Amino acid sequence: MHESLQKAVTKVLSPLVRLLLRHGVSHAEFANWAKQAYVTEASEHFGIKGKSPTVSRMAIMTGINRKEVKRIRELPSEVGTGVSKFNRAVRVVTGWLQDQEFQNDRGKPDVLRYGDPEDSFNQLVKRYGGDVPARAMLDELKRVGTVDHQEDKVTLQHAGYVPHQSESALLDIFALSATDLLTTLEHNLHKTDQRRLQMSVAYDDVTTEGREHFRKLSAKQGMALLKVLDKSLAGFDKGTTSSVTGEGSHRIGLGVYWIEDISSQDELAAASDKEDKPT
């Protein structure tokens, strides 16, 4: 069992290690982060009868000595992960894409006016951004390259909240999306009788022409699917629709992502050409 687990986890860690190496993070620094994750997960999910485990029990479970467990548990909680800000920015952009009030005659996102409380961009943020001020939301969308702001006009640059000019925003999305996917995969391994939706389509010998065809098709169909799902789900979200009532407060959703191995033939060829060129 441990051999299979080791192979699976090593493979999962590969893209994470690439990210860490690009950012100059050493193995020792990553090991410290991993210890924090071990202690956090043990504390939050492996207690008995709803109670957090003792330091001694956590030391036994994690293999980290009691002194180190105690030190990690006393570290200040992390704040400002960007997840809340990300979620609200997504809601605003999605509302811009979906709500007819903020679209032009062709059903495309309209150029909105920003300034007075009654201006269209301000109203968009008021409707979909919760308690975030319009100025703060505009600054965030500008920071990541999602909108263009000229005088009193705001133009949507991309069909979704996809940061193009902020590495920190991209890392927020990386953390959120990777955690969501791994949480579902771990759940399906642990609770085989209550499996969550987990599907994908991939082939391993596709031509370059086929890759480009599928890239365009998947982008178009994926966006169409997410728009339908977003419209349906928003109707049950108390934070988005003020008239919604009912019990529970769940974070649920569905992710769509592109699959392509880093070792694709085109990338290998490009890397080879780069190595052959004189410097």
Rank of each mutant, 00 (worst) to 15 (best):
E209Q: 08
D204N: 13
F174R: 13
D139T: 06
V132R: 00
Y203Q: 13
D139M: 11
H213V: 10
A219D: 10
V244Q: 05
S263Y: 03
G255T: 12
S43L: 06
L176Q: 10
L217S: 07
I48E: 13
A202P: 05
D110G: 05
R22H: 03
K277S: 11
A134P: 01
L112G: 00
S84K: 12
V244H: 03
M199F: 09
G255L: 15
V244P: 05
Q265A: 10
N104G: 15
K231R: 09
V9S: 04
V9F: 01
R18L: 12
E212I: 06
F46P: 05
Q150G: 14
S249A: 09
G63F: 00
D152Y: 00
D152I: 02
T240P: 02
D266F: 07
T40Q: 13
R143F: 00
Y38D: 09
V244A: 04
R195F: 15
V244L: 03
R73G: 09
H2M: 09
D139E: 07
K70W: 06
D204K: 15
M61C: 01
S4P: 07
K67Q: 09
G95S: 01
G82C: 04
S249T: 08
K7H: 06
L21D: 08
P278K: 03
D105W: 12
L20D: 02
L217E: 06
P76V: 05
S77G: 13
T94H: 01
K49S: 15
R196I: 08
Y203G: 11
R113Q: 07
L226R: 05
E41M: 10
D230M: 12
Q36E: 15
T192C: 08
T208L: 12
N65F: 10
E186S: 08
G145K: 00
V39G: 01
E151L: 05
L268C: 11
R57T: 09
L229H: 04
V111D: 08
G63N: 01
T155F: 02
G115W: 00
M199T: 14
H23M: 09
Q198S: 10
M199P: 14
G160Y: 03
V83I: 12
G160P: 05
E151V: 04
S264C: 12
S56C: 07
I262A: 14
W33Y: 14
H187M: 03
F214N: 09
P15Q: 02
K70N: 13
F214W: 05
T10S: 15
H2C: 10
S120F: 03
R88G: 00
T192R: 12
M137P: 00
I252L: 07
D205E: 12
D105P: 08
E118T: 09
L5G: 04
D193V: 05
D273I: 11
L182G: 00
E260L: 09
K216G: 14
R106P: 12
T183W: 04
Q198I: 06
V17W: 04
N32W: 10
G210N: 03
I48K: 10
V111E: 07
H149K: 06
R73Q: 13
R91G: 00
